[in-house]
Every structure is written in C-alpha cells, then in structure tokens.
C-alpha cells in the first residue's frame, strides 16, 4: 500500500501552495501518472480519502483526476522515437532492445483547483484586526485554516 505514501506526498506538496493562494478548500487535484509506475487507481483513491479526512476541512471531498501517460521510448541504435505498451519496449523499426524510456514513469501533480472565500487579492494578510473575539488562534497550520467568521463585504483587508 505505497499509495498511502503517494497520497500523503500529494497533500504535503499542494497544501502549502494552496494556503499561499488563500485557499479555504481544494476541490480537485489533477495528476499525471505514467503507465510504467505501479500505482493502483482504486488503492490511491482509497488512500486519498483517508488522507483528506486527516487533513481536515481544506481537503473535504477533494477529488483526484488522473491522466495516464503512455510509455514513450527513444531507440539508442536507430534514433526512432515511439510510443509502446509497457510490455513491448523494443524498437519497432530495428528491433533493438537498447532503448531509453523518456515518458511513462511520471508521478506528477499537474494542477489543482482551490476555492477562496472572498474576492480579495489572494495574498492579502489573513490576520486582519478583528474584534469578534472568536477564533483564539490555532486555526493555522497543516490541519487547515478555519473559514473566516464574518467576511465583510467590500472591505479590502489592509492590515497595515
């Protein structure tokens, strides 16, 4: 079940970037997975569900979309470039087995969609002066940022 490590790797790398962009939620993550890698889609979806639950609201209901990448080879003998299924990597034009795999092993996060609370500039400071007395800190960090209690319509939050 290394899919769990993969799922954690996805969360670890996207969450900082998501928060930097002011995300309150990540709704979908798009992956590119090479057919030569040993990822089992069902196991990954299952592991992802577990990781999403652990990471709290920000990943609640987040979906994975997977684009699979077929193996692409370059023949070291005749220079031919070709796609092949994973079990037949030999060069189809000269038969050589001296080939280089140039695509087909990727485990890559292509993009992800985030939701932000307001139309503020994404990098606006979030600890605006707030006398509501709610949320005594602790809303930050890896488990997610609590949604702001009362977004003030139209107020561009200039903290300084």
């Amino acid at each position: 079940m290394h899919e769990y490590s993969i799922a954690e790797g996805i969360a670890d790398s996207i969450l900082p970037a998501a928060f930097d962009n002011g995300a309150t939620r990540v709704s979908v993550v798009r992956l590119r997975i090479g057919e030569m890698s040993d990822i089992v889609r069902d196991a990954l979806d299952f592991a992802w569900g577990v990781v999403c639950e652990e990471r709290g609201d920000v990943l609640a209901g987040c979906r994975l979309e997977v684009e699979s990448v077929s193996p692409h080879f370059v023949c070291m003998d005749c220079g031919n470039e070709y796609d092949a299924d994973r079990l037949h990597p030999r060069c189809p034009s000269c038969g050589s087995g001296k080939t280089l795999l140039t695509k087909g092993r990727e485990l890559e996060i292509a993009s992800f969609d985030i939701e932000t609370e307001t139309d503020d500039e994404p990098d606006a400071p979030d600890d605006e002066p707030d006398d509501s007395g709610e949320d005594p800190g602790g809303a930050h960090g890896p488990r997610g940022r609590a949604p702001r209690p009362r977004p003030e319509p139209g107020a561009s939050s200039q903290a300084n």
Partner: peptide
C-alpha cells in the same frame, strides 16, 4: 470563488 493552480511538480 474558485481558481486553478498550475503546479507541474513530481509527487515524490
């Protein structure tokens, strides 16, 4: 509001 972040980073 929703927004797409282009990422292009290996998972591992």
């Amino acid at each position: 509001m929703s927004q797409t972040i282009e990422f292009g980073t290996p998972i591992l």
